[in-house]
Amino acid sequence: MIAIDIQQPLAHFTLEVSCSLKAPVTAVVGASGSGKTSLLEAIAGLREATRGRITIDDAVLLDSDRGFSLPPEKRRVGYVPQEIALFPHLRARDNILFARRDHDRLMSLAQMLELVPLLDRYPSSLSGGERQRVALARALMAQPRVLLLDEPLAAIDQPLRERILVHLRRIRDQERLPMIYVTHQPFEALALATYCIVLREGRVIGQGRPDDVLRDPQIGATTDVDNVFEVSDPHHDRENGITRVKTSDGGTLVLPFDLVADATFPLVVRISGEEIVVFGKRPESVSSRNVLEGVVSDVRVYEGRADVTITAPMPVRVRLTRSAVEELQIAPGRRVWLALRSRSFRLIG
C-alpha cells in the first residue's frame, strides 16, 4: 500500500494530497497545471520542499516531522517522466542496464516490451513509443517498489504501431508492480486503472473507482462516455473491408480493415458512448457491423441525459437522452440491442 499525506508549495497554489493507494494501477487525472507531475516528483524525492509523510508498505520515504527524507536513489521508485529523458549518450541497452547490469533481466524485459531489435540503437534514432518502452524497461531494471508514469501516451505520434497501453497492461499483469499513472485523458485512466484520483489546483477533489469518479458530475472530470477495449486475435477480411477481433472480456467486435491492417495485436480501441445506438428490439438490416445483444446493468440519470451501462457481454456505456430512456423503458434487467459503427472506433495504443 502506498500512503501519501503531503503538502508541496508550488508557484500558484499548495499541492495537498492525502490518499492510500492499494490498487494495482492508480490513475491521477487532472487538467494541465493541477499538480499531477509535482505529486509524482514528490513521491520520487525530486522536490526538496515537500512536507508530510510518504510510505510504501513498511518503507518510509518521507517523514518531514522527524526531519527524514530518503534520497531519490534509495527510494526505489521507478519514474518515467513525460519527456522520457533517456540518456542520449547511451544506447538503449545501456540505458536499460544503467541501474543494474543484469543481462538475463535485460533480455526478459526486452522480450516483454518488444525491444530486442532496438537494443543497440541510440535514443535519437527511436520513435516516441520506442523511447517510452526503453524508459519503462530502464525503470523496471531498478527493481522499483512502484512505477510512476507521467502522461505515457503524450510523446506518442503513431498509436497504431506503439501500443503503449498494451505494454503497460503487460507490466501490470506480469510484473505485479503498483503503478501511478498521471494523465489528463480520462479514457486512458479507464483503460488501465482500477483506482482514480482527480486533482484540481493541487487538491484531491475525488477518488475511487475510475468509472464512478470520472463520471461523477459533481467532480466534473469528464463528461465523456468512453468505452475502451483491448482487442486481439484478428481475422482480416480484406475484400469486405472488415476485421473481426476478440475483446479481453470475451466479446467479438468488427473493426474497419484499413484501421487495423498494419497494427500489431493486441491493441486498445475506443468508442464513444455517444456514437452507439440502442434498440428495444433486434434490429434488421442495419449498416453498423456490430450489433450486440445485452442486458442493462446500470442507469444513471442526469439533467436531460442518462448514462447507461449494458453487459454485452463486455460492459458497454451509452449516453442517451431522457426521452429515449423513457420511450425504450431502459432500466436494469432490460434486454436491448446495440449498434456500434465500426468506423466509430479509434485506436489509442
Binding site: L46, P72, E73, V77, Y79, F87, P88, F98, A99
Partner: peptide, 22 residues
C-alpha cells in the same frame, strides 16, 4: 539538462555516480 541527473538518481545512482555517468 538536470532532468537526466534526477532520473539517474531515481535509478539508484548516488549524486556522484549520476554526475560521473550522466
Amino acid at each position: 539538462d538536470p532532468r537526466y541527473f534526477q532520473i539517474a538518481r531515481t535509478l539508484g545512482a548516488s549524486p556522484l555516480r549520476a554526475f560521473m555517468r550522466v
